[in-house]
Simulated scan of single mutants.
Amino acid sequence: MEEIGVHELSLRYLARKAGVSEAAPSHHFAGKEGLLAAIAADGFRDLAALRVAIAESDETALSKAYRMMRVYVEFAQRYKGLFELMVGPRIVARDSYPELSTETMKSFRLFASSVEQFALEKQWEERSLALVTHAAWSVEHGLATLILSDRMPQSDKPLSIDQVVEFSISMFLSAVAAGASSLEEVMMHIQGLHGAGKTRRTRR
């Protein structure tokens, strides 16, 4: 993955690297996509192992939530080619590979559970937890993909990647810590802006 990238990877290339016959991979995998799905599943298994260690630690809920999000970004930085395969569009029929689906969900549930536990500590209601989790997912995945595409930080800004990652995750978690009432206040203000915009358009 790191040497030639997912698009150039072939069963023939891997057979040569493994020192086996060119026909050997076809005895274990249903074509190239089957092999890629198995590799992606291994990637999610490795990520889940890192997250299990965090979940089983004696750290606070805040620390666990932060580290769960941070380790996702760090994994992407460390294994760029593998990460792109894990989350990218190369594997079209992802649901056709049970192992990949299982390992993906295991990693996600570890992450989601830690974020939800922190949110519950801050008095968020059960009905809001899925939204909180998806917002956290957007932050960690957005950071990872922007970094890997060399789009962050912008060249004219004197920032390091580490600064941006730490600040972004911390800012999200500080919003969770502020509680649902703080979010409701902001959303009411935003809805007011939308309403004002509609009124202006109607008058025109």
Rank of each mutant, 00 (worst) to 15 (best):
E2D: 14
L9V: 06
L11D: 13
A15Y: 03
R16V: 04
R16H: 08
R16F: 00
K17S: 04
G19D: 10
V20T: 13
S21Y: 04
A23D: 13
A24Y: 09
H28G: 01
F29S: 06
G31H: 07
G31V: 07
G34L: 01
L36Q: 11
A40E: 08
G43D: 07
D46F: 00
L50D: 12
S57H: 07
S57R: 10
K64S: 02
Y66K: 10
Y66Q: 10
R70I: 01
R70Q: 14
Y72R: 14
V73C: 05
Q77P: 00
Q77V: 01
K80A: 14
E84I: 06
L85M: 08
V87M: 11
V87Q: 09
R94T: 13
R94E: 12
Y97N: 08
Y97S: 05
E99S: 05
S101F: 02
S101W: 03
S101T: 14
E103I: 00
F108T: 09
A112N: 09
S114V: 00
Q117P: 01
A119F: 02
E126A: 07
R127P: 00
S128W: 06
L131H: 03
A135I: 06
V139F: 04
V139C: 10
H141T: 09
L146M: 15
I147V: 11
S149I: 01
R151A: 09
R151V: 00
S155W: 02
I161T: 15
I161H: 05
D162G: 04
V165C: 07
E166P: 00
A177Q: 15
S182V: 05
E184V: 10
M188K: 15
H189V: 09
G192L: 09
L193N: 10
H194E: 06
G195I: 00
G195K: 11
R203G: 05
R204I: 02
